[in-house]
Design a protein around this nucleic acid. Sequence first.
DNA 1: ACCCGTCTTTGTGGTATGCAACATT
DNA 2: GAATGTTGCATACCACAAAGACGGG
Length: 383
Amino acid sequence: MNGSSRNEEAEAPQPEREHQKRLCDYCGSSMALLYCRADSAKLCFSCDREVHSANQLFSKHTRSLLCDACDGSPASIFCTTESSVLCQNCDWESHNLSSSSVHDRRPLEGFSGCPCLNELLTVVGFENMDKKALLLGDESGDGGGGGDGFLGCGVDGSFDLDDGFSDFLVWDTPSVVSLDDLIVSNPAYKFQAMGVPPLPKNRNAACGRHKEEIFRQLRVLVKSEPNLFSENVDVKPLKSLASEQNMQRGSLFTGFEHDIEPTVFPAYEAHDFQYNDCGTAEKRESSPKTFIRSYLQECCVVPDKHSHNDGHGHGGQMNSEASSAFPKVAAHELISQNRETALSRYKEKKKTRRYEKHIRYESRKVRAESRTRIKGRFAKMDH
DNA sequence: ACCCGTCTTTGTGGTATGCAACATT
DNA sequence: GAATGTTGCATACCACAAAGACGGG
């Protein structure tokens, strides 16, 4: 499958079929937009909130946007060229061809806790939107059928930006514009920054092909929970910190809870560091990915450490905001604590990780072992 | 709501095969 | 440097019982 054919499929007018394919595993009626790895479940925003606010343990689950291509896996890559969010597999399938490998892509981060609306908007890439915009959209777009929201969806699937809200669909140039800014070349790891071009000024948000549905569900969420705007319950400290520093811009990986799953880099890059199915734990410990991760973590929480003002003006503004909001000493203490907890959580998870094959049905295993074979293949039984 | 029959989907393991990386000539 | 050989890994293939979905009584 190549990228173009997948696009053609996705652009085909099959909203009903797609809706069926993406049904929320919890309520079974709404379109699922998020994926929870821990629950292996597709969820709509409302159910996600309901499920993961149940207790503190559930709230630690990491959720990601649902892949636009397969509708069944957590998205880790946002392709700005296709305006799609993709899981690692679909990203690999879509972009490993030379013609499509030049697509502008960037990693997506997941989120955990019970984020307030602003943070949810950040997750989907609309951090500049506020309550007024959301409610205004509600007023202008209600009445069901077709419109269904302030962000009208054009016939080609794109948004109608003539409603005065187009500003919300335009990204500010982020403080850290690409992985190039984050990845340091290190001969010891034979790893070099990949050629990710600077992100364009005018980008669509990172919510892929279901922008309208995302906004519709967020609006419903706001209606049902008016205090969602100010609520900030049990959000991961690092995430919160980064958000307050207004430095993520939806493009930076911050989710420690992703453990070491290779989901934060473009597929072709991840392929180079793909983990084996078993063994070589020490090798993993010092793998380039681990190194990059720790570096990213550091960059995410100490933006002024490595970022520089490249003349586009975005770096300086962020730094001044950050420094005014957080005294450096206190911030470093927080950073240190967060790193320690994240590290211990990572190590603990690595201990319990199972690399061996997992047999779900022992009876089938017994059966398969006793089956007659021809060159390894199952042979027909003589009856 | 429950049971039953029918149909579809899933999962199981050993081997062959293809591919990439690396070593040797 | 080019050609050839070696090694390791991922994956397709096969049949069929079990699991799951579904509709009718």
